[in-house]
């Protein structure tokens, strides 16, 4: 009971650091894929290394937070929900790391005709993830603002879906010079980039239900 303020302060710092780490991971993913599209492979590999370190760091922070929440019974009513939320945020950084490493392993061939579309898809998908982190941050301090941020996430997620469908249509219908294997490969990578915004949407939905639950 006596140490509760000190522990709370530590957990608050850890949560902030955790969100910073995930945000950095998302930015690195965006930069990494852009580097890949431009053919800057050395820079791309550097991004991959950074994202791997960030993912490991996020995992260790979440473990610390989980530990403190359970051992010191902080926010006992919402501890499991908050941890679940952090885990879902962790899914975003896991996803961006996996996607970038898939770019590294499979080295997909992205034709010049769709490079601009692919880059737009990446930017919009990442925007959705970029907006969900401030929403999650603000959940802890001012829950009235969460709704506004969530709206943006949902909007960008829908835009991502539309753009991804357009790219897939273009690849399969307007690019006969590509082999079927190349088309399927491109479809998978479109899907991988799309998954980032899907993960952000999951967090957004969870946040909106949590706001209802924690409201006085």
């Amino acid at each position: 009971m006596i140490k509760i303020f000190k522990t709370s302060k530590n957990v608050i710092i850890n949560i902030d650091e955790y969100f910073n780490t995930v945000e950095l991971g998302i930015l690195n993913f965006k930069e990494g894929v852009n580097n890949y599209l431009e053919g800057n492979l050395t820079e791309f590999e550097n991004n991959l290394k950074i994202i791997e370190v960030l993912e490991g760091k996020a995992d260790s922070i979440i473990r610390k937070i989980e530990n403190d929440l359970y051992i010191y019974s902080l926010i006992p009513n919402y501890a499991s929900e908050v941890l679940n939320l952090l885990e879902k945020v962790d899914d975003i950084i896991d996803k961006v790391k996996n996607n970038l490493s898939q770019f590294d392993v499979e080295r997909p061939f992205i034709p010049e005709e769709i490079k601009i579309d692919f880059s737009r898809l990446l930017n919009i998908s990442v925007k959705s993830a970029e907006n969900v982190i401030p929403a999650a941050r603000v959940f802890f301090t001012d829950q009235n603002l969460v709704k506004d941020r969530i709206q943006k996430v949902i909007f960008y997620e829908r835009e991502t879906d539309k753009l991804a469908t357009n790219i897939k249509r273009k690849v399969f219908k307007e690019m006969p010079h590509l082999k079927l294997s190349e088309k399927i490969h491109l479809r998978y990578f479109t899907l991988h980039v799309e998954e980032v915004s899907d993960a952000a949407e999951v967090v957004a939905k969870m946040l909106s239900s949590l706001v209802i639950k924690t409201r006085m």
């Binding site: 009971m1 509760i4 303020f5 709370s8 302060k9 957990v11 608050i12 949560i15 902080l74 926010i75 919402y78 908050v82 959940f139 802890f140 301090t141 001012d142 924690t214």
Partner: peptide, 14 residues
């Protein structure tokens, strides 16, 4: 006041 959820928890406990 926009108190952090965890700080609010500590205040509420006391």
């Amino acid at each position: 006041r926009r108190i952090h959820l965890l700080k609010l928890d500590a205040y509420l406990k006391y």
